[in-house]
Structure formats: structure tokens, C-alpha cells
Simulated assay, not measured.
Amino acid sequence: MITQPAAAGKAELNTLVTAGLSTRAIVALAQLVAFVSYQVRVVAALKALQALEQTA
């Protein structure tokens, strides 16, 4: 789910339900994964900008 969130399907959701997660917890987990993924992209972009400034 973390490395390929779009590939998560019914089987993965059933695994989470079997593990004891509620629908609300699964939604919260999906939102957390999306937010962390966004943060990683922002940090990568900021590092790229910083490297670009240092070479200029």
C-alpha cells in the first residue's frame, strides 16, 4: 500500500479488515500514507532546489 497505493485492491483491503482494522481506521491509514507520500515529494523538491541554488 505504501510503495504502490494505486495497486491496492479488494484483497489488500480484506487483509486489513482481517487484521482487525475498521473501515474508519483503513481510511485514516490511506490518508496518512497519501500525506507522507506528499511530504516525501516536497522534501525531494526542496533538496533539488537547494542543490540548484548551490550550483548557480
Rank of each mutant, 00 (worst) to 15 (best):
M1E: 01
M1Q: 06
M1K: 03
I2Y: 03
I2W: 03
I2C: 00
T3L: 12
T3R: 08
Q4M: 06
Q4T: 09
Q4A: 11
P5Q: 09
P5W: 01
P5A: 04
A6H: 09
A7H: 05
A7R: 14
A8R: 00
A8F: 04
G9N: 06
G9M: 01
G9A: 07
G9L: 04
K10V: 14
K10G: 08
A11V: 11
A11N: 04
A11K: 14
A11W: 01
A11D: 03
E12R: 07
L13W: 04
L13H: 01
L13V: 05
L13K: 13
L13E: 11
L13N: 03
L13C: 02
N14D: 15
N14T: 09
T15Y: 09
L16C: 02
L16W: 15
V17C: 07
V17Y: 12
T18F: 13
A19F: 11
A19W: 10
A19S: 14
A19N: 08
G20T: 02
S22Y: 13
S22K: 12
T23C: 06
R24T: 12
I26W: 03
I26N: 13
V27A: 05
V27T: 10
A28E: 08
A28R: 14
A28D: 10
A28F: 09
L29T: 08
L29Q: 09
L29N: 02
L29G: 04
A30I: 03
A30D: 01
A30F: 01
L32F: 04
L32T: 08
L32S: 13
V33S: 05
A34T: 07
A34M: 07
A34Q: 11
V36Y: 02
V36H: 03
V36K: 15
V36D: 03
Y38S: 10
Y38E: 05
Y38Q: 14
Q39F: 05
Q39A: 08
R41W: 01
R41N: 08
R41S: 05
V42Y: 04
V42H: 08
V43M: 05
V43L: 08
A44F: 02
A44S: 15
A44K: 14
A45K: 15
A45T: 15
K47V: 07
A48C: 02
L49G: 14
L49H: 12
Q50G: 10
A51Y: 05
A51N: 12
A51I: 12
L52R: 06
L52V: 07
E53L: 14
E53S: 12
E53V: 11
E53K: 12
E53T: 13
Q54Y: 13
Q54G: 11
T55P: 00
A56K: 10
A56N: 12
A56L: 15
A56H: 06
